[in-house]
């Protein structure tokens, strides 16, 4: 009896992590659907909900035209939903604008800067580790670089805010002390250990007979590393890229502290940016529960979740399958 009970309990607890994923889906999306708190506005909003809060946003746009004159309160809600693709993010004003494009742009800009710095560095270090470092040195190098991942993100954000920002502004003489480059450098510090670890594992896991064949044919050690091992490990290194990208894209505290948080669409990398994650972090504490602003912030969270979820799924399934195929094909 206790045997059966134990297996049931263990199985249901194991289900928790799966249930949490489902619950995150349900609850983050649920809060992203507009609702209201006050009793007065509730009626107006509910009425509207049946008409225009449906699946397609284009319907909502059409409805605004007719609704505008009668209900000022609801007009605001609908307009802001319709304007999600706008280029202005002004959530707190008389006519709030919830354009997500500058936030997307900010996230991509700072993430790209971060990965452009971190990826070559980390892959270079991984190549060094497997090609030139002796066995003893490698045993030290790996934990040392992984020590970087032990830094809490708020500490790296602090370091960026104080030291990196000063260095960047005195070196480049920029107008804004906190900008996308400072954020990018800070993000690079956080994702270097991730990319390094995954890339190093990928390079290490290439079967010995492949590199030995290359060495036996007279290739030098570095030629083997660059022309044989590196190409064979491409899927794993691509996975490292995706994981680093996902981590940087969702990182909150660092960008909140180091990027200046101005929602602009500028191409200049020395201007401040406001990312999706930092927007949630900065504004969620001040919104009214059930407000349009509140819902839009949850919508941003839902988008972040879906984005990182897909990146992980690609890294997990697609890359691993390719890697397996490659080795089974060549073995």
């Amino acid at each position: 009896m206790s045997e059966y009970l134990a297996s049931i309990i263990i199985k249901s607890v194991a289900f928790v992590s799966f249930a949490v994923i489902l619950l995150i889906f349900v609850f983050v999306f649920k809060e992203a659907i507009p609702q209201s708190t006050g009793d007065g506005t509730k009626v107006a909003q509910e009425e509207l909900q049946s008409e225009s809060y449906g699946d397609d946003i284009s319907g909502a746009v059409d409805n605004t035209v007719t609704e505008v004159k009668t209900k000022h309160e609801s007009e605001e809600g609908v307009q802001s939903i319709a304007n999600l693709t706008g280029t202005e993010w002004q959530p707190v004003s008389l006519k709030p604008k919830f354009g997500l494009l500058p936030l997307f742009w900010g996230s991509f800009k700072v993430t790209l800067l971060g990965i452009l710095m971190a990826f070559p560095l980390a892959v270079g270090a991984a190549l060094y580790s497997i090609t030139f470092a002796g066995r003893g040195f490698r045993e030290i190098l790996k934990p040392v670089i992984e020590l970087l991942s032990g830094f809490p993100s708020v500490v790296i954000g602090f370091f960026a805010l104080t030291t990196v920002a000063s260095a960047v502004s005195s070196f480049f003489g920029v107008t804004y002390r906190l900008n996308a480059v400072v954020g990018g450098i800070a993000l690079a510090i956080t994702i270097v250990p991730i990319i390094f670890t995954v890339a190093e594992d990928a390079l290490q896991s290439i079967p010995k007979h492949i590199s030995e064949a290359s060495l036996a044919l007279g290739a030098t050690k570095w030629q083997t590393a660059v022309f044989v091992i590196l190409p064979a490990a491409t899927p794993g290194i691509f996975a490292a890229f995706l994981l680093g990208f996902g981590r940087a894209f969702g990182e909150t505290m660092i960008v909140l502290m180091a990027t200046g948080n101005a929602a602009t669409m500028s191409l200049n990398i020395f201007e401040p940016v406001r990312t999706l994650s930092a927007t949630i972090g900065a504004e969620m504490a001040e919104v009214v529960f059930g407000d349009t602003h509140y819902s839009v912030l949850f919508l941003i969270g839902a988008l972040l979740f879906v984005f990182t979820f897909s990146l992980n799924a690609i890294a997990e399934f697609w890359v691993r399958k390719r890697l397996l195929k490659k080795f089974q094909g060549s073995a």
Partner: peptide
Amino acid sequence: GVPSIVFG
């Protein structure tokens, strides 16, 4: 892999 802010 879920961003920590989403947990929040």
